[in-house]
Amino acid sequence: MSDVEEQVQVEEEVVVEESSSVSIEDCLQKVLRTSLVHDGLARGLREAIKALARGEAELCVLCDSVTEAKIISLVEALCNEPEEKIPLIKVSDAKQLGEWAGLCALDREGNARKVVGASCVVIKNWGADSEERNVLLEYFSQQ
């Protein structure tokens, strides 16, 4: 029986090491995929602003490479309203954000083709409770 107890302890240590090596971008990608499956994403600027204005947003992801500065200031202002502060995270590549949000076609091998860039994506419904979601919420609570 002592052998079984030692194996359980080793497995717990391995899980702790894996969770510490997970980056915020990896967590964000998995949370966006989960939310997409549960129909909880507002993709694109028009849908995102509607969700932010209605107060349906749980998390906002904004692309830094947007050419219009007014778009960035509008989204930041809607996220920082005094009634409801919505967590905002910025990514650098619009094509990558579009791929994470499902704005692409997949080939037979599962590789993304014909990726459409997204300037803003809002999570309206987290979908399922996951470890990645908890990591993101903890990250925003620390800031």
Results as ranks from 00 to 15, higher is better:
1 M>W: 10
1 M>G: 13
2 S>F: 12
3 D>K: 06
3 D>H: 06
4 V>A: 04
4 V>T: 10
5 E>H: 09
6 E>M: 10
7 Q>P: 00
8 V>D: 05
8 V>N: 05
9 Q>W: 01
10 V>T: 13
14 V>T: 12
15 V>G: 02
17 E>W: 10
17 E>V: 15
18 E>F: 14
18 E>W: 15
19 S>A: 13
19 S>V: 15
20 S>I: 13
21 S>T: 12
22 V>D: 05
23 S>G: 15
23 S>P: 12
24 I>F: 06
24 I>L: 13
26 D>W: 13
28 L>N: 06
30 K>R: 14
31 V>F: 03
32 L>D: 01
32 L>P: 06
33 R>K: 13
34 T>N: 15
34 T>Q: 11
35 S>N: 04
38 H>G: 05
38 H>E: 14
39 D>N: 12
40 G>I: 08
40 G>S: 09
40 G>V: 06
42 A>Y: 03
44 G>K: 05
44 G>W: 06
44 G>T: 04
46 R>H: 12
47 E>F: 02
47 E>Q: 09
49 I>H: 01
50 K>L: 07
51 A>Q: 04
51 A>R: 02
51 A>K: 04
52 L>Q: 00
53 A>S: 14
55 G>D: 06
56 E>F: 01
56 E>M: 02
56 E>Y: 08
58 E>C: 07
58 E>Y: 08
59 L>M: 10
59 L>A: 03
59 L>F: 11
62 L>Q: 00
62 L>I: 04
62 L>C: 02
63 C>R: 05
63 C>G: 14
64 D>V: 01
65 S>E: 11
67 T>H: 11
68 E>N: 06
68 E>D: 11
68 E>S: 09
69 A>K: 12
71 I>G: 00
71 I>W: 01
72 I>N: 03
72 I>Q: 09
73 S>T: 15
75 V>E: 00
79 C>Y: 01
79 C>D: 04
80 N>I: 11
82 P>E: 09
83 E>H: 02
84 E>H: 10
84 E>C: 09
85 K>F: 03
85 K>R: 11
86 I>W: 07
89 I>T: 15
91 V>I: 12
92 S>L: 04
92 S>P: 06
92 S>T: 14
93 D>M: 11
94 A>K: 15
97 L>G: 10
97 L>I: 08
97 L>C: 08
98 G>I: 09
98 G>D: 04
99 E>S: 14
100 W>Q: 00
101 A>N: 11
101 A>C: 12
101 A>D: 11
102 G>E: 13
105 A>M: 12
105 A>W: 09
106 L>T: 10
107 D>I: 06
109 E>V: 12
111 N>I: 12
111 N>S: 14
111 N>Y: 13
113 R>D: 05
116 V>R: 13
116 V>W: 15
120 C>V: 15
121 V>M: 04
122 V>Y: 00
122 V>L: 05
122 V>N: 00
123 I>Y: 08
124 K>L: 08
125 N>V: 09
126 W>V: 08
129 D>V: 06
130 S>E: 08
134 N>Q: 11
134 N>C: 02
135 V>R: 05
136 L>H: 05
136 L>K: 07
137 L>F: 07
139 Y>R: 08
141 S>W: 01
142 Q>W: 00
